[in-house]
Computed example of a mutant assay.
Amino acid sequence: MTLPAFPVSNTALPLLDSDVLRTFVAIAESGSFTRAARQVFRTPSALSMQIKRLEETLGQSLFVREARQVRLTPEGEVLLSYGRRLLKLNEEAVTHFLTPPLEGTVRFGTPDDVGSRILPRVLAQFARSHPAVQVEVVVGRSIDMLERLDRGELDLALVTAGNEGLDSARGEIVHTEPLAWACLDGGVAHERSPLPLALANQGCAWRAMALSALDRSGVDYRVAYTSENCAGQEAALLADLAVAPLSLSLIRAPLRKLEANAGLPSIGEYQILLIRGAGTSSAGEVLAGHVAEAFRDLR
C-alpha cells in the first residue's frame, strides 16, 4: 500500500517526533505492537495511532501486519536506520547539557580482532558526548588485557571467553559469534594432509576450541604458523599456506569460509566479555555502556 505523499513545497518539511520514532523502533525490533507497548508503557491501540500518523506524514506504509507479527516494508527498513541514528543523536545532545560533565582518563584494553569492529564508532560517539575525557586504548592478547586489569593498569577490558585463567563469570557477555574455518578462495591449503593450521599463540580461546574440535573428529593436522594477532594468521591464509579458525565476521574476500563438505568439524561459538576493573569511574561506566551498545547493534 502506498499512501498519499506529503506535499513538497516551499514550506518547512514536517519534523519527526522523537517519541513516535522511539515507538516505531520498539515495534520494529520486537516484531509486535503488543510487546512494544509493554516496553514504552502504552496500549497497542495508542501505538497503532502513532504509526498511522507517521505513515501519513511520510506517505509510506512502514509495516506489513501479519497474523502473529509485524515486519518492516522496504521503506520501514530505511526509516529504522534513520530512526536509530536520530534517537542516538538526541540522546547525545540531551546528555551533553543535562548530565554532569565527565573528566579524567579511561584506560581501555582490547584484542585487535575484537576492538577493530567497534572502536571507531565507540570512540567517535564518546568523544562527541564527553570531550573532556581522555581514552587510552591498549591493544593486545586477551590474557594480557586480563593481567593488566588485575594490576590496576586498565579500567575496562574486552576479552575472549575461554582463554586460560579467565573465569567467564567475571564479565558481561556483550557478543556471541560462531567461529568458522577460513581459507584462501580458490586455494588448496585445506586439501593438504596433515592439515596446516595458522593459529594464535598458546592461551588463545580460538586456538583451544579449534584444536579440541579437530582432536574429537580425528582430523590429522599440524600447527604450521603462529601469531599473536589475526593479521599474522590472515597473512598465512592469503599465501595459501594454511587454514585458520576465525570469527565469521572477519572472513572477507579473498578469504572464504570452508563449508561442512570440506570434512572439517564445527568449532562452535565464542563469547566476548566486557570486564570492569575495581572502582571503575563514572567515565569508565559510560564508556562501557557505549561499548555494550555497539556490540548490540552488530546483531
Rank of each mutant, 00 (worst) to 15 (best):
V94L: 10
P120E: 11
F63I: 01
R85P: 00
M209R: 15
L211R: 11
A12V: 06
V137Y: 07
Q60G: 02
L158R: 11
Y270D: 12
L197E: 04
K88V: 05
R53P: 03
L166D: 13
V188M: 11
L250Q: 09
V40I: 11
E172K: 10
R84Y: 11
L274R: 08
D144C: 03
R38G: 13
A288L: 01
A93G: 08
E77N: 06
E147L: 14
L214I: 07
I118E: 08
L149N: 07
L250H: 06
V291L: 01
Q233M: 15
G115C: 05
V137D: 12
T176W: 10
A224C: 00
L123R: 06
I267G: 03
G83W: 04
D167G: 11
T57K: 13
L197P: 03
R141W: 01
D215K: 10
W181E: 03
S217V: 05
R276W: 01
H190P: 03
D240H: 03
V291C: 02
L264Q: 04
G187N: 02
R222G: 07
L62F: 08
R299C: 01
P111G: 00
R252K: 14
V138R: 09
L184C: 01
L287N: 11
H96I: 11
S217Y: 05
L195H: 05
F41S: 12
D17C: 12
E191D: 10
L3N: 14
T226H: 07
L62D: 12
L195G: 03
S129Q: 12
L102C: 04
P100H: 08
I272C: 13
F6L: 12
I173C: 15
T99N: 14
G104Q: 03
R141I: 00
S116M: 05
L211E: 08
D17E: 15
T43P: 00
R107V: 05
R65K: 15
Q134S: 14
R296W: 02
L238C: 04
A262T: 09
E172C: 03
E285W: 14
V8N: 14
E66W: 08
P254M: 08
R35H: 13
F108S: 10
T34H: 00
T23K: 10
D215P: 01
V291E: 01
L179W: 00
L199A: 00
A236H: 02
L246E: 06
P44W: 04
G218C: 08
N261H: 11
I173L: 14
V135R: 02
L241D: 12
G152Y: 06
A46K: 12
L179C: 01
A231T: 15
E29M: 03
A294H: 07
E56Q: 15
P14Y: 02
L86A: 15
Q202F: 12
L119P: 10
L298W: 04
D220K: 07
S116Y: 00
G109E: 04
A36M: 09
A292Y: 01
S18G: 11
L58Y: 09
L149H: 05
P131V: 04
A5K: 15
R299P: 04
